[in-house]
Design a protein around this nucleic acid. Sequence first.
DNA 1: GTATTTCCAGACAGAACTGATTGCTTTTTT
DNA 2: AAAAAAGCAATCAGTTCTGTCTGGAAATAC
Lengths: 220, 220
Amino acid sequence: MPASKMNNSRISSADESSRPLIEPTAQALKSARTRSRLIEATIRCLVKYSYANTTTPKVAEEAGLSRGAMLHHFDNGRQLMQATMVELHHKRLRAFRRAAGTLDHDARTLLRTYWEQLLRSTFIAFQELAIASRTDKELAKTLEPVRKEFNERWHDLAIELFPEWSHDPTAFKVALGLTHNTLEGMALNRLTHGIDDETIELVLDKLEQVILELRPDRKS
Amino acid sequence: MPASKMNNSRISSADESSRPLIEPTAQALKSARTRSRLIEATIRCLVKYSYANTTTPKVAEEAGLSRGAMLHHFDNGRQLMQATMVELHHKRLRAFRRAAGTLDHDARTLLRTYWEQLLRSTFIAFQELAIASRTDKELAKTLEPVRKEFNERWHDLAIELFPEWSHDPTAFKVALGLTHNTLEGMALNRLTHGIDDETIELVLDKLEQVILELRPDRKS
DNA sequence: GTATTTCCAGACAGAACTGATTGCTTTTTT
DNA sequence: AAAAAAGCAATCAGTTCTGTCTGGAAATAC
């Protein structure tokens, strides 16, 4: 009888009621490592083959593991996709926080920083899953809280870097919405050759200018 | 020996070398009608099931036809998808032209008009195919000229409606790029609940304002 | 009017993916 | 050290897709 596969790695589980927390078993480590290998392989497959053509045999091969091992850690393909979505979310948050630490409180660099994130394969894989979520209810259930947390973290960080925005919540919402949607739209169109590099630069420059003009301290 | 399936409906073929052009045979009409039914069914399937879950049996069932009929008109599933992409392109162009005819030369209405197009299922289906084109070379080969023509038509119509833009090609490029990418990004994020209606309205308003400020006649 | 072509349906074989089951090896428990 | 559990591989059966092939009805050509 296998244990619950939703979270069988004790190393990161915080809900062990009958035991003390510290128990980094050797096997739990191995398990976590294998899970990670599978998730990373899934991400690579999403980028290489797209969501439509990512199958369990391909993921297993990409991970250098058997399909049996995969089904041991994830009850089915969908659970693997859901775990991958959560991992991609954390990747995006980590990259964002890391990059934000080096920012010099400049709106220009924040915008460019996010743009560079959107060029990475993490965004491609995430987007594949987001698109799939439109018609996959289970995936959508995983995406919803993830998307919520991402927006909240973004909001918090932006306010932290530029406290003056808190004086004008509406302008802030506009700036955030404009930034997110324009950059993500460009990133997606770029993937299917729907936009050229020159236009991208022009739009980025104009967008920076618009955001700067929206800042409350320039109005007062 | 079946005839060429790429274009077996003589009704719209212009390359009949051995015969006069006018030959709307009864059977050619029927054939064109069936092709259209299959393509329309494909579009509905793309919206309902996504590209990943759209299969030839589902399309045939949606069209109320047998799979045999489908394979008679399209050699394989990919050809059906390519034909569907072209049809979606024409749908978008038609809707655009139709809406443009009722415009009163106002940038605001042009922007809102395009936004309303992006809420339709035509855009959803087109986007599913565009995303799939990232990893499907054959689909990408079909998408490329389609995308090119769409952008050209957009460009031409916008210049026709607002000739003053032709004085400043760079500003025009910025306005077009900003509009396209922001609206399409919002439309996509909306499909996965990544943006709320209030934010959409705010961004649309701001975008209008930015576009208006970019107009050359305001600068002189 | 007969022959040929076209439209369409149904049956067919092959391939691929899915989750389940079995069994072996290694680790952990007691 | 024995027992239990976990990690992993390989095979299995079942489903579903894919494209092909055959045949019949309707239309067109001769």
